[in-house]
Design a binder for these strands. Structure first.
Length: 821
DNA sequence: GGATACCCTTTACC
DNA sequence: ACGGGTAAAGGGTATCC
């Protein structure tokens, strides 16, 4: 049989002691196909320098004779080849050693500790990554494939009769089809509603499913309701088996949940186990697998299970406006749509089941829509990084860039570096921390007519321009770039990086160039796909420095990371000096930016200055004009002695306000303090009118004193970030969390803790003794909100104008007030 | 018993 | 383990006299 085939998901199985890969995908007719391919696992033995031919022969003879009998498997070295390769940029001779079974690569590597062999590499890549690397059968690339259709065949123990795809094909030949194959995935989203957050304490009440032309809620509750999309079953057990059947019948390419790796799928699995119900959801009738780890991963063979929450979290949360990553907030931001209004209660207290069903279905609809929204991004990431979407949707940024590197090493003839082992990770973590960026101490005040410059992709452009990486680090000061001086154990040191070679900076340059190219392409032809492509390269490019300094990275380097940061400090400080030398007053700078007052200069002058500064930068380094600003305000710290860093507000010429670090943007301050400060900043920046701002502030103080502030505006929100018992200090938010637990409220790590400080009869001075939960009745403590919320939010701003709001709010110094009214 | 330095904790910036 | 150093700030706690 011959057909066109697009790989989507990858799995593996063992037969007769050998590994086989099953690739699930589709042909042009939309038929689901499972392609089975064999796999030749291998590793590298890098030979010691300058071995004689005789010595090499001796090593080869030793290697070829290796055979193992382990875990009921027999494995041996199937064949070996000598190659001229590179390792960390140096020329090496290496033996490519093929083994019978991937799982034995480690054991074979253990046997290679002999004198002629310098290093062992390539045995820790992951089975699927290793397969894709070796056979170059990439996800979402179109292939013309031919092979034998297995139908009732005894091959692989009759596997085709178990696998429920339209065809099972044993791969013969494959050939890439050069075209941008259109592929629209079949998607099914799901969501469960339960009586508890823990499967041992509560049942699943309903499960909703949403796909194109398909919507369904399966439930065993509220049977009197009549909704056409609701299917009633007799109990939870039947609910689960109907759910598994419906998913199988729909046969989605992607089965999508929101936080489903850590909630829905483990919950479903646990309940099925408690009810002793098998859940053969995989195309091979296997059960969903949940891998252990800090964050579990739920996998179903042949159906790619995606937890879209995880992808949004890693790839997008840094660019998001919303204050939490809840389905509601994320949907509002990306879809412009909210969850249905419904107050979640224990099932015994539910009256309107119809609304609950509707709510549940809508959550699946939102999850479905979020997948559609991010599908171009998942697709582009997968095509660029060359890893399956299952991985792409869950991996952190460091893992993504590492995967990109691994799949591109062949272009440099490089042997992959190994993953650090536990002791290596431990020692990296113990090693001195890398000194970070420089922050300029601002001079507090209100300033007019400012300009701000910033470096584009500063860390990345430094790596490329100075050729900094693990493999370019050298002892020689000839033909190399010296780092600025770096403090190591109290002494100043300089590191050298060779000017030539270095696959990492070179690879990064390609990413950097492609980022530019695809950004242009997007501007010319804006579409979700061009946007996603441009964004994928942006994310990869921006993650490079974080990767080098990440202790789990294969290409980690303390020296490289320190050098990059030292250059970051150097260039920022130099820029500040140059701008001052040109006659401008620098107000602020953080890492890669500098803000300064324009004085009497024109915009043209400023752009001229920028051009001059750029002409003096090396390589691909570049600065751009962030914007011109009409006004900007910087304040002192609370102690009042120095200018506060990372805290400022500016207004541009269109009246758009940029607020950084102020309480306004901090989620752990109550709304009334945040809104009051926000408005004060607006009045001051827009019109430069601090009198109006003060009037407004006093109005809020009055409203507060006469208890006119609404309850929701005084709620303080905070998160619990570790198990309650581990807290050494008992803060208000910890007390609130304990209260929630006592009341058996749904509560987990990262659930927002919402409380307020109430008037109380206790004589305690501790704030935690006045904590009440959001729904507890009570009056707010006027003094607390005045002294600890409203006044602090305004104090340092008015101080810039010589106004002491503490005294004003207390009603003291009336005579001074007359000056303002 | 009160002042204060210090520690713990959360969140933001880049 | 999945980015991490720099920074602000509140609130509790230890320590001093």
């Amino acid at each position: 049989m011959e057909t066109e085939f697009i790989p989507i998901d990858y799995g593996s199985f063992d037969f007769d002691g050998k590994n086989y890969i099953e690739i699930f995908g589709k042909d042009t007719g939309g038929r689901r196909i499972c392609v089975i391919d064999d796999f030749e696992p291998y590793l590298w033995a890098i030979l010691k320098d300058k071995l004689s031919d005789k010595e090499v022969k001796k090593v080869l003879d030793y290697v070829n004779a290796i055979s193992l009998h382990e875990k009921g498997r027999e494995t041996k070295v199937e064949k070996s080849e000598i190659h001229n390769k590179k390792f960390l940029g140096k020329d090496v001779k290496a033996i490519k050693i093929y083994a019978t079974n991937y799982k034995d690569l480690h054991s074979i590597a253990d046997k290679l500790g002999i004198p002629g062999i310098e290093k062992r590499r390539g045995y820790d890549l992951g089975l699927i990554t290793s397969y894709i690397l070796g056979k170059k059968l990439y996800p979402f690339v179109s292939y013309k494939i031919s092979g034998e259709v297995l139908s009732g065949s005894p091959e692989f123990g009759g596997i085709d009769s178990i696998i429920g795809t339209d065809f099972v094909i044993k791969l013969g030949k494959k050939e890439e089809v050069k075209k941008d194959g259109k592929f629209s995935p079949k998607v099914l989203a799901y969501d469960i509603e339960t009586d508890s957050l823990k499967p041992e304490n509560g049942e699943i009440l309903m499960i909703s499913l949403y796909g194109k032309g398909f919507r369904k809620v399966i439930s065993w509750k509220g049977k009197s309701s009549k909704e056409s999309y609701v299917e009633f079953v007799k109990d939870e057990k039947e609910l689960l088996s109907r759910f598994a059947e419906e998913v199988k019948n729909f046969s989605p390419d992607f089965f999508v949940g929101y936080n489903s790796d850590n909630f829905d799928m483990p919950f479903i699995k646990s309940r099925a186990k408690i009810l002793k119900l098998p859940l053969p959801m995989g195309v091979d009738l296997s059960e969903p697998q949940i891998s252990r780890g800090v964050s579990g991963r739920a996998k179903i063979t042949g159906i790619t299970h995606i937890d879209i929450f995880r992808f949004i979290k890693t790839a997008y949360s840094q660019y998001m406006q919303s204050e939490s990553l809840s389905l509601n907030e994320v949907s509002k931001e990306f879809l412009g749509e909210s969850k249905k209004d419904f107050e979640l209660k224990h099932s015994s207290k539910i009256k309107d089941w119809n609304r609950y069903f509707e709510y549940n279905l809508h959550d699946s609809f939102l999850t479905f829509s979020l997948f559609e929204k991010f599908w171009p991004d998942l697709l582009e990431f997968s095509k660029i990084i060359r890893e399956p979407v299952f991985e792409i949707s869950r991996n952190g940024l460091s893992k993504q860039i590492e995967s990109y590197i691994l799949h591109n090493l062949d272009n440099f003839n490089e042997i992959p570096e190994k993953r650090p082992n536990d002791s290596e990770i431990e020692s990296r973590r113990r090693s001195a921390t890398v000194e970070g960026a420089f922050v300029y101490e601002p001079k507090p005040g209100l300033y007019e007519d400012l300009a701000m410059f910033d470096f584009t992709s500063m860390h990345t452009s430094i790596i490329i321009s100075h050729n900094i990486s693990k493999e370019t680090l050298t002892d020689s000061n000839k033909g190399s770039v010296a780092s600025p001086e770096i403090k190591v154990g109290g002494k100043e040191r300089v590191f050298y990086f060779s000017k030539k070679g270095g696959f990492f900076p070179e690879m990064l340059r390609e990413i950097f160039e492609k980022r530019k190219k695809f950004k242009e392409e997007y501007k010319k032809d804006p579409s979700p796909i061009t946007k996603a492509r441009s964004n994928a390269f942006k994310v990869l490019s921006a993650s490079a420095h974080g990767y080098i300094g990440f202790f789990g990275a294969r290409y980690y380097s303390w020296e490289a990371s320190s050098t990059i940061l030292a250059f970051v400090r150097k260039y920022n400080i130099e820029t500040i000096k140059k701008i001052e030398k040109a006659g401008y007053e620098v107000i602020y700078g953080d890492t890669d930016s500098v803000a300064f007052t324009m004085g009497k200069s024109s915009k043209k002058d400023i752009k001229g200055l920028l051009e001059k500064l750029n002409s003096e930068l090396p390589g691909v380094m570049h600065m751009e004009l962030e914007d011109f600003f009409k006004r900007g305000i910087w304040v002192t710290t609370r102690s009042g002695e120095t200018g506060a860093k990372k805290k400022y507000a500016m207004i541009d010429e269109e009246g758009k306000i940029k607020i950084r670090g102020f309480e306004t943007v901090r989620r752990d301050w109550c709304d009334i303090a945040r809104k009051t400060q926000d408005h004060i900043l607006k009045l001051i920046l827009r019109d430069g009118n601090e009198e109006e701002a003060l009037k407004f502030f006093l109005q809020v103080v009055e409203r507060l004193k006469s208890r006119e502030i609404k309850k929701e505006e005084i709620i303080i929100k905070s998160q619990i970030k570790k198990p309650i018992e581990e807290y050494k200090s008992v803060t208000p938010h910890v007390v609130a969390a304990i209260k929630m637990k006592e009341r058996k409220m749904p509560f987990d790590l990262f659930t927002p803790i919402e409380y307020y400080i109430a008037e109380s009869l206790t004589r305690s001075k501790l704030i935690r003794d006045k904590v009440k939960l959001k729904d507890e009745p009570g009056d707010y403590d006027v003094e607390y909100y005045l002294k600890n919320q409203i006044i602090p939010s305004a104090e340092n701003i008015f101080q810039v104008f010589g106004i002491n709001v503490k005294e004003v709010a207390d009603g003291k110094k009336q005579e001074n007030l007359k000056k303002w009214f």
